[in-house]
Amino acid sequence: MSKKHGLNLSKAEIMEHRLEILYRILPLISVLLLVGLWMIASRDFNADVGSGFPTPAAVWDRTVRLFTRPVKKMNLIMHALVSLRRIGLALAFDWTFGIIFGIIIGWFPKPRAFFTPMFDAFRAVPPLAWIPLITLWFGIGEFPKILIVIFGSLASIVVNVKAGLSAVDKMYLNVGTVFNATPMQTLIKIAIPSSLDAIFAGVRTSTSAAWMVVLAAEMLGADSGVGFLISRGMDSIDMPLVLTGMIAIGIVGAILAILTQFVERLICPWTRKSK
C-alpha cells in the first residue's frame, strides 16, 4: 500500500498512477532519442567540404550566423515572415472564395452537380504541376507564388466545407421546417453553424497545405522565404543552413496548427467537450 494525498490507494489505482507518469515521460524520451540519433548520425560531419550530416552545434551556429550575417539582407525571422505573408494572402483568398464556393456546392444541388466534376479534375492535379504554366503566364514575381499556394490549398477547404454543408443533420433542418424558416434562414441559422466544425477542419488543413506548398514554390525560384533558404543551402552545399530552414519550417508549422486550433475554440466553443 502506498500513500497519496493521505489516502490508501488500491493496487489498480497505483498501476494507473504509474501509467500516467509513464505517459508523461515517454514523449520526453522520444525527443531525447531523436537528438541522440541526430548526434550519432552527424559523427562524420565535415563542415569544410560539407560532407556528412550536420551536427546540432553546427546548425545552432548557422542559425545564429543567419542573424548576424543575414542572407539577402534578411534574417531567419524575416524570411519566415515573407513565407507567412505569401500563405496569408493565399489563405485570405481560400477562406473567402473557397468557403463561399464550398457552401454553394455543398448546399445547392444544382451547382453541386455542375461544378463537382470540374472541381474534382482540378484538385486531382498536384499544385506543383502548375509551376511551368504559371511561370510562363505570370513570370516569377510574388503573384505566381501566391497563385501556386492557392492552387495547393484551395481544394482542402472547399472539400471540407462542401462535406459539412451536404451532411447537415436532418433533425436540425426539420426544426427549421417546423418553425417555418425561409430558405435563407435555414442556410444561415442552421446549415452553416452546424457545419462550422467541418469548415474549421478545412481551415486547419488548408493552412498546413499552404505552408507545405509555399516552401516548394520558394525552392523553385525565389530570393526570400524559408524555402529559398533551403535551396540556397543546397546550392552552396551549406547543410547546416538547410537544417536551419527545416527546423524553422517545423516550428512555424506547429505554431500555425496551435493558432488555428486556438481560433477554432474561440469561434466554436461548443466543440469543447469539457463540463
Binding site: P193, S194, W270
Partner: peptide, 28 residues
C-alpha cells in the same frame, strides 16, 4: 402557428440554452 417537440434531442448544439430558447421566435 405550430410547434413540435421532437423525440430526439434537437437542441442546436452550437447555441447556448438561452439562444436555443430564442431560436424559433427569432426565426419568426
Amino acid at each position: 402557428n405550430l410547434s413540435v417537440v421532437f423525440q430526439e434531442p434537437s437542441a442546436m448544439p452550437w447555441l447556448t440554452v438561452e439562444k436555443n430558447l430564442r431560436f424559433g421566435m427569432e426565426i419568426k
